[in-house]
């Protein structure tokens, strides 16, 4: 086992343990903090995959913004710090079965298709990923359409957030 493999194992274990704690911790606020740990573990795995820009995005957007949004959303709810409800309701077996089926299905699909058979061009993953990403985002035979659609998606999210949270 090389050093990279053992590093991957360490970060995978950190990610999985904190992800497990996210769904089993009773205190929602603590769950959000564990979620930050999970996201950090994913960022570390991105680094090990040589996806540096993605790792930086993971830290800036997910840990820096989305985790904060989660915490604000939790603090909007009542009785955050003294939770009284149970974590598991009577549907947990069905939910676990469905989750297991979903996982098996995803594994089968990813084994059948594999990453090499996608139709869109792949970023080579060499040293200068940011500039390659920049070229791929705006070149007409790569990701132009998803790039422009992303702006529409952001616009929809912006308008939706303002509409939901403003005073009526």
């Amino acid at each position: 086992m090389t050093g990279m493999d053992s590093l991957f194992l360490i970060f995978a274990v950190i990610t999985l343990i904190s992800a497990f704690l996210v769904v089993t911790t009773k205190n929602l606020f603590h769950a959000a903090l564990w979620l930050i740990m999970t996201l950090f573990g994913v960022a570390a795995i991105y680094v090990l995959l040589n996806a540096f820009y993605l790792a930086v995005i993971q830290v800036i957007v997910y840990i820096g913004a989305i985790a904060i949004l989660m915490i604000f959303a939790i603090m909007l709810t009542q009785r955050v710090m003294n939770p009284s409800g149970r974590i598991f309701n009577k549907n947990w077996i069905i939910a676990a079965l469905l989750g297991a089926f979903m996982f098996i299905g995803l594994v089968i699909i990813s084994m059948q298709t594999g990453a090499s058979k996608t139709t869109l061009p792949q970023i080579s993953g060499q040293l200068d990923t940011v500039s390659e990403l920049g070229q791929a985002l705006v070149s007409p035979n790569a990701y132009v359409i998803p790039f422009e659609v992303a702006s529409v998606l952001l616009l929809a999210a912006l308008i939706g957030a303002i509409f939901v949270s403003r005073k009526r």
């Binding site: 820009y53 995005i57 800036i60 957007v61 820096g64 913004a65 989305i66 904060i68 949004l69 604000f72 959303a73 603090m75 909007l76 709810t77 009542q78 009785r79 955050v80 710090m81 003294n82 940011v130 500039s131 990403l133 920049g134 985002l137 705006v138 790039f147 992303a150 702006s151 952001l154 999210a157 912006l158 957030a161 303002i162 949270s165 403003r166």
Partner: peptide, 28 residues
Amino acid sequence: TRRMNVRFYLIAVLFILFDIEVIFFLPW
């Protein structure tokens, strides 16, 4: 542990959206 004002949520959402815009600007 009191409830926060919903404006904080709106500010956080707006922050995320403009954050993601910057993520797209940088490689370009």
